[in-house]
Design a protein around this nucleic acid. Structure first.
Lengths: 121, 121
DNA sequence: CGGTATCCAATGTGATACTG
DNA sequence: CAGTATCACATTGGATACCG
């Protein structure tokens, strides 16, 4: 008799939802790079990031940062200088992303190796 | 004197690339769910998946599966029955995704809790 | 059963110019 | 400096019908 497979266990479902939440807040071409730079180098200004990701359109960078801010992963601080400067930094939630991202990054590195090996066979 | 910040260390860069590789092969609305179902329930036929993800268009499911197959995360096996049946299953690389996905899922779960708490404050 | 073909709307990304 | 406004273009996801 065939096992009934209509539904995954609650734990699995929760985990899948968690992954998709993460995928969601990390969607977009630049968010992971932004988070990484903030993590490894600390707070950055808008222009710092513009220069770092050479070629990124300001509109796009602006949107990525707004998304991250809305999702409570980065903070935006206006410094009352002239002209004004704005600093972006990670929240605790943003910093806590480092551990799972390292895990995923390690997978990606070994995945890439295994694919390259396939292609030389 | 300010620290020179032009470049992240090689290890960081590699890790970021790894994360982005992963993000790349997991892009799309259904890939993570497909991988999860295959992981927790074993091989599935096209129609199984169509039913599981109620409402998914066959064109879309077909594309997701093709992407996964091209990236060596799933296998596609044609059974010579009449009419033909096709089974999809995870490759070892696909299975190896489970560990980092669990890590990311755990983050997502605690992230969701922390956001919900913020909203009730 | 396991797809493809066609058409469509929404979204994402980018180039460029401009503003307070 | 830190963005916004506008236009253009590619990609994504979906509805529906059809095919071998």
């Amino acid at each position: 008799m065939r096992k009934d497979h209509k539904q995954l266990s609650d734990h699995c479902q929760q985990c899948i939802t968690g992954v998709m939440d993460a995928q969601d807040v990390l969607s977009g071409k630049w968010k992971i790079q932004i988070i990484s730079v903030l993590y490894y180098e600390g707070k950055q200004r808008f222009m710092d990031l513009t220069r770092r990701f050479e070629g990124i359109a300001p509109k796009v960078l602006s949107k990525e940062l707004k998304d991250l801010e809305l999702n409570h992963l980065v903070t935006r601080t206006v410094l009352e200088t002239t002209p004004v400067m704005v600093e972006y930094d990670l929240t605790p939630e943003g910093k806590s992303l480092n551990a799972p991202l390292e895990a995923l990054g390690a997978w990606g590195i070994s995945y890439r190796k295994s694919i390259m090996k396939k292609n030389t066979d």
